[in-house]
Design a protein around this nucleic acid. Structure first.
Lengths: 251, 251
DNA sequence: CGCGAGCCTTGACCTAAATCAACCCGATGC
DNA sequence: GCATCGGGTTGATTTAGGTCAAGGCTCGCG
């Protein structure tokens, strides 16, 4: 596993945990540490909930990944209609190598820490070490799959199915990170406001609210406060989501 | 430009024209011909309009690109609701390296010729020659952008805007291939049935038909037969499409 | 303590698009 | 010549979700 390397000890895979970009984008199986070469250009940035990180059209001279918190990619039409097109959870990658300006608004929906690299050196590294590009291709293909699942949701699912799908998606992502199950019951904290959910799902926030209430009334979910959700029967939720190919998790 | 190469003459960039996968996926600027190594695994396949090339879940042991004709990627729910998630025009790439089975139905909507490579050797080539992977990453990122534009369309646009957008998308793709403009007027042949359009747009085919009629009645488009469309004022069409970031072409 | 701001819920009503249904048109086959 | 079939249009009606409007709850602040 542990390859001998010219990089100093502090760059070995022990540090993978604290820097998702390294973990996910580079040393997929902790076999390499090419990114060590970028160590001097690496920096952390913190944002408060609600803060916009980049505006669509702005110059964007970094790439990076989410360390903690949640960010979204959103598109806006002139008249203000908004559609979320990306939901970034910890370890997700932001920024497109080879593009000058941001194509979407990037917004922190919770307090957020990102790990960034200056884009130019990152791009150079990509050319030098195929490993990085290959990993990035894999991640981009995953994102594309997620986007396509999302398109099915937007184009064909009912409001109720959309809500059920979103809860399932978040539960799955959450679970894969934190394993919060107890005897089949799954517990999730929605990290999004009703408005953010509506932007994700292509609905109004009133409809989101109503459908969440309906799912609760029908016993599909239990709610404590506004955001804390318990799913007594996950299969039931999946059924409500109308998911054909389950197992696929979007985002 | 023309690099000396160990490959026989028949593999030089002169052949790029007749094999889009080589042109688009590999020798982006006709500088390389790595794919020559795959020449013996390359083959062409023809399909008739309406034929399904691969069923979602099927084993898929090739990758390839569209040479002529049009194919679609479609997702289906158990109850039959269908959403198109990819529209493949000539030179577009099909197939995900690293995936065993197809995630979507691939359907030929017109008579179609594809240029295919067996997946295994293609994947090996990708590891050996970073060039190929880099080009593929670029293409995948483009597709992801297109998917996100598409999500805005599905989630937030009205039926009329959706139709206008689709016509604009096809016109742009078409124009960039064939340059069919005459004094500002743009002429397109819709390569899709009303049903296929409805699957693209997340509408019913009746709504598609009605909105096309409405756009014609309002002079935004002129129609001859069922499929032949003239756009007297392209900017007007774009306006009807509600496009914010124009210039970006989806698909 | 009262006040306002955010976030959320619920109700009444409206409308865009879906649904159901009839029909047109051109090609294909017998 | 007639029947059939796939693709397309158009009309009447229904409905899911949007819109507008009135609160409710909680938290921070003067």
């Amino acid at each position: 596993m542990q390859k001998t390397s010219t990089a100093p000890a502090k760059f070995t895979h022990v540090q993978c945990g604290d820097c998702p970009i390294r973990h996910r984008a580079v040393c997929a199986r902790c076999e390499t540490d090419e990114l060590a070469r970028l160590e001097e250009t690496k920096y952390y940035r913190s944002f408060e909930a609600g803060q916009t990180i980049v505006w669509s059209g702005d110059r964007m001279d970094f790439v990076g990944s989410v360390v903690t918190g949640i960010a979204t990619l959103t598109q806006t039409m002139e008249d203000g209609r908004r559609q979320m097109v990306g939901l970034l959870l910890p370890s997700d990658f932001v920024g497109r190598p080879g593009r000058e300006t941001a194509a979407y608004d990037v917004v922190a929906t919770t307090d957020l820490v990102m790990c960034c690299f200056r884009k130019k050196p990152f791009e150079e590294l990509m050319v030098q070490t195929p490993h990085v590009g290959q990993r990035l291709l894999e991640m981009t293909l995953d994102e594309l799959d997620a986007a396509r699942e999302w398109m099915l949701l937007l184009g064909r699912k009912t409001a109720r199915e959309k809500i059920a799908s979103l809860i399932a998606i978040i539960a799955r992502r959450d679970a894969s990170l934190k394993m919060q199950k107890s005897e089949g019951r799954v517990i999730v904290d929605l990290p999004l406001t009703r408005e953010a959910m509506s932007e994700y799902l292509g609905l109004t926030l009133e409809t989101v609210s109503r459908q969440i209430s309906a799912l609760r009334k029908d016993g599909v979910i239990e709610i404590e406060g506004k955001r804390h959700i318990t799913i007594p029967d996950f299969d039931r939720l999946i059924e409500e989501a109308g998911d054909d190919s389950d197992g696929g998790f979007l985002v």
